[in-house]
Design a binder for these strands. Structure first.
Length: 595
RNA sequence: GGGGGUGUAGCUCAGUUGGUUAGAGCGAUCGCCUGUCACGCGAUAGGUCGCGGGUUCGAGUCCCGUCACUCCCGCCA
């Protein structure tokens, strides 16, 4: 095949019996019996067992080769005896009887073992990423990533999309995340920004008449890391289409994601037609706009119940009277659960900083419904019945209440949904549960400043008849704005764009940007929209998160070849690094020294 | 910016209420072993217990500070 090998380490089997072959790879593992030596030779494709005994005068030399040395073995394919076949290996029916060898690359003592199921500190893994990447699990993840991206490209082309590239050096935008800035040598004192997403460019591509755009686009945001969020860069499947409405984009993305997840995972897709949940509903039923629909638990609002005369739970009644809300989670058939099950959940809620989760179980005796549990006695049979009606509960189900400010209740019950479901073990891990979150509000109130701001994407089209929108009630304006959520993970955001300049000015004005600022900050786009822009819209699924779901990984670094660490440093390449004074001078930059 | 966790041999970890010379597995080096596939057996080397300070007769262990990694909150249109 090449000068170095006739076969890879994954492809030989009993059909090759007797052939003379040349294999090259890394010494994965040695099993040295003194007069008989087994060597597992590894490459990208697999492992082949090579064997030599002391009748061969090369034995003493080969015995001494350290693990992870790169070697070439010349040898003969030999069928293994039946009881020595290794079913774990694709090449397990055969082995290579070594005739000759050549060392192609020596190794120093390893800072981390390659052949091992042990976990290692991130620090050492990232510093020696090239060794870490040899390890089987992450090696497979990275190859999976490559295959998925390649599949996406083919699919998108089948759907009639063309891939267009957009600039990496662009302008800073006032909205959104912190920018990575790049100083301009030719324009002293001015800076480029790396794109947070090719948002404006993809819209300009539509205005330019290209119709269906996609790109595996790098996105740069200078924000702090999380387990599922790289600092620095990440990749989106950026999509934009002209002359479409929301449903057209949904159709494309649903079939794309169905195809990807069916091809690359054995897990089932719960609903191939992704359910659509309004933002408002999602916040009510799940306490979040990224609900995990594998979790059957739902939240309901019971504030009204605590205004009833026959409900005597005075603490909640007082709080409700003062403007608090009450919401609750019901659990099915939990009548038999131990006291500690309930108390643990209450205790957990207190650890989360809340005042706890009051609870009781619906029971029936002598045809009378009552609540059994710490606060059950405060509810009349009629009140219980009403609660059961609102919460779809039955006799034998339990209910957990949270009372407080809307935001706090949502947050706690969102976490409680997960906690309780985990305790009850009712989350099916073998599912992908997709949904659309739709009808996002165009604006929201900034909690710190009290001012109106864009809640999502400022370029989104508001819903309804454009001539009838009531701009005096901006918080009531909904946008053609949507997210895809899978298993509680936000996979993508998108929108039908606002292609009407006057409307755009109007909306920006509400968010506190006057015409002058809009013209300055979004000049490219607002200008383009003034010369015949088609109605258009798009979406941008996160590639990294798709791979994480497919590879069943919780950390984005497990599906990224060369990630930065949490402090946005590359420990292998030593980035970021200091630069020479003359480089700074050329860029007209002074470093201010911190005290 | 804030909170939690971790830091002991090249790697993964143990180390009791503070008490003699800090241990194990893997790896390395050396020796034995012809059918292993996490091969087995024996020996040897390998340590500023992250760093600095304090308490104490005595600190890996307690206290204070600091650094690194990680998880979370803030942030992420």
């Amino acid at each position: 095949m090449t000068d170095y090998r006739t076969h890879t380490c994954g492809e030989l089997n009993s059909k090759n019996n007797g052939e003379n072959v040349l294999l090259s790879g890394w010494i994965n593992k040695k099993r040295d019996h003194g007069n008989l030596l087994f060597i597992d030779l590894r490459d990208n494709y697999g492992i082949t067992q090579c064997v030599i005994d002391n009748k061969n005068n090369l034995f003493k030399n080969i015995e001494k080769i350290p693990l992870e040395t790169v070697v070439q073995f010349e040898g003969q394919v030999v069928k293994r005896e039946k009881d020595t076949i290794n079913k774990e290996l694709s090449s397990g029916e055969i082995e290579i009887k070594i005739i000759n060898f050549k060392i192609l690359g020596t190794t120093k003592e390893l800072p981390l073992p390659v052949f091992s199921d042990q976990e290692y500190s991130e620090e050492i893994r990232l510093k020696y990423r090239f060794l870490d990447l040899r390890r089987s699990k992450i090696h497979k993840n990275i190859n999976l990533r490559s295959k998925v991206i390649s599949f996406i490209r083919k699919e998108m082309e089948n759907f009639g999309f063309l891939e267009y590239q957009t600039p990496i050096l662009t302008s800073s935008s006032p909205e959104g995340a912190r920018d990575f800035l790049v100083p301009s040598r030719l324009n002293p004192g001015k800076f480029y920004a790396l794109p947070q997403a090719p948002q404006q460019f993809k819209q300009l591509i539509m205005v330019s008449g290209f119709d269906k755009y996609f790109q595996i686009a790098p996105c740069f945001r200078d924000e702090d890391a999380r387990a599922d969020r790289s600092p620095g860069e990440f990749y989106q499947l950026d999509i934009e289409m002209s002359f479409v409405s929301q449903k057209d984009i949904f159709n494309v993305v649903e079939s794309l994601l169905n195809n990807i997840f069916e091809k690359f995972s054995t897990k089932k897709i719960l609903n191939k037609k992704f359910p659509k949940i309004t933002f408002f509903d999602s916040m009510l039923r799940y306490g979040t706009d990224k609900p995990d629909l594998r979790n059957p638990l739902e939240i309901c609002d019971l504030t009204e119940i605590f205004t009833r005369q026959d409900v005597k739970f005075e603490i909640f009644k007082k709080l409700v009277n003062e403007g608090s809300i009450v919401r609750a989670i019901t659990t099915k058939k939990t009548i038999g659960k131990s006291r500690s099950f309930f108390d643990n959940i209450d205790k957990w809620a207190k650890q989360e900083g809340s005042s706890g989760l009051a609870y009781f179980t619906f029971e029936k005796e002598n045809n009378k419904i009552f609540g059994k549990g710490p606060i059950g006695k405060f509810f009349s049979p009629e009140a219980c019945q009403e609660i059961m009606k609102i919460s779809n509960a039955e006799i034998g189900d339990s209910i957990f209440f949270s009372c407080g400010k809307k935001k706090d209740v949502e947050k706690l019950l969102c976490l409680a949904r997960n906690k309780i479901a985990e305790d009850l073990k009712i989350i099916n891990e073998n599912l992908f549960a997709f949904c659309w979150i739709v009808d996002y509000p165009m604006f929201e109130t900034d909690e710190k400043t009290g001012k109106i701001k864009f809640s999502h994407n400022p370029f989104s089209m508001p819903q309804g008849d454009i001539n009838k929108i009531n701009f005096n009630k901006p918080l009531d304006i909904k946008a053609y704005q949507y997210d895809i959520v899978c298993n509680g993970i936000e996979l993508s955001s998108g929108a039908i764009r606002n292609h009407i300049p006057e409307l755009m000015y109007k909306l920006f004005e509400i968010a506190g940007y006057d015409k002058k600022i809009v013209d300055e900050k979004f000049s490219g786009m607002i200008n383009a929209l003034s010369y015949g822009a088609p109605p258009h819209g798009g979406i941008a699924p996160g590639i990294d998160r798709i791979i994480m779901l497919l590879a069943n990984e919780k950390n984005i670094r497990e599906v990224t070849m060369f990630p930065l660490n949490q402090n946005a440093q590359d420990l292998m390449m030593n980035a970021p690094s200091k630069v020479e004074d003359n480089q700074l001078k050329e860029l007209n930059i002074n470093i201010i020294k911190k005290k």
